[in-house]
């Protein structure tokens, strides 16, 4: 549990950080909250020669509005997110999900950017960002580009980030007023990754589901959008048969690994239950 030696860099601007990453090449890793990278280094599963700490870049922290979008700086911590009244009011599912991430100590340090950029299928925020239709701003030596969260994840720890690029902010379209939402996460204990989790954002009209998006956490090597399940519920009043159909459609795209949280069959089964419960709760709190 002792990391190998490394050099430490603390750039003051995104431009400096990008230049450092570009100059140092593959031996360098950007450091945000460190909750994924540092444990890997302690186990010597990662041995970067250079750490580029992003904490010195003031512009990467903070939550602001850009039209109908909420823009969250990459170095904004989960705690900052929880403290934001705007987030709680306009995108309450983020508030709800952030509370389910580990414990207060982790949330004081863990960042949104790190959570979504690392490509860890166990992280909660990626599936939420896909559900909300968010996009990520990536900045590198050749400039900046925006990638939809839904297009970002390619495999476990594999993302659309090119070498030398940094994820600098997340842009979240604010859902319609009166939308319903829920993040249902089954976990063994505080601090654990989800055995399975489902995010639902929907709108209701005349007692029926008008629009719906469903995201799934930790039931595949990437976070998933359960599009068929969402389609299945639109236009329904979430009757038992529909819920069953939606759960089955969601389960059909799940491919979790067997681990100490349970065998594959169990994790898929409870994944379906999380979808059902999230749909029911979201419909109940929609206005």
């Amino acid at each position: 549990m002792i990391p190998g030696s490394f050099s430490y860099h603390r750039p003051a601007s995104v431009a400096d950080a990008v230049k450092l990453l570009s100059d140092l090449g593959e031996d360098a890793r950007p450091l945000a909250g460190g909750h994924s990278l540092v444990p890997m280094m302690k186990l010597r599963l990662a041995s970067p020669a250079h750490l580029v700490d992003l904490h010195g870049i003031t512009g990467l922290k903070g939550i602001s509005r850009n039209g109908n979008n909420l823009v969250i700086g990459a170095m904004t911590t989960q705690h900052d997110l929880l403290a934001s009244e705007d987030v709680a009011k306009s995108v309450p599912i983020l508030h709800e999900a952030a509370l389910l991430i580990a414990d207060p100590q982790v949330r004081y340090r863990g960042t949104i950017g790190g959570n979504v950029a690392n490509g860890d299928p166990g992280n909660d925020m990626p599936a939420l960002m896909m559900t909300l239709g968010a996009s990520y701003r990536l900045e590198g030596a050749s400039g900046a580009r925006d990638v939809a969260a839904a297009d970002f994840y390619q495999g476990a720890y594999f993302t659309a980030l090119e070498p030398g690029e940094i994820l600098t902010s997340v842009s979240v379209p604010v859902p319609a007023a009166g939308h319903g939402y829920a993040y249902e996460k089954l976990k063994r204990k505080v601090g654990d990754y989800a055995t399975a989790a489902a995010a639902v954002v929907l709108t209701m009209s005349g007692g029926k589901v008008a629009t719906c998006a469903i995201g799934l956490t930790n039931v595949h090597e990437t976070p998933l959008l359960a599009a068929d399940a969402a389609t299945a519920v639109v236009g329904t009043s979430l009757d038992p048969a529909t819920l069953k159909k939606a759960a089955a459609a969601a389960e059909a795209i799940m491919a979790p690994a067997a681990d100490a949280r349970g065998p594959v069959e169990y994790r898929k089964h409870v994944g379906g239950i999380m979808v059902t419960r999230a749909l029911q709760r979201a419909a109940a709190n929609a206005k």
């Binding site: 414990d103 063994r188 204990k189 601090g191 681990d259 100490a260």
Partner: peptide, 16 residues
Amino acid sequence: VVTGSFMDFFMPTAVE
């Protein structure tokens, strides 16, 4: 041995 850390070796917190 597949339970080598507190991620998988169940150590309840005050919450559980």
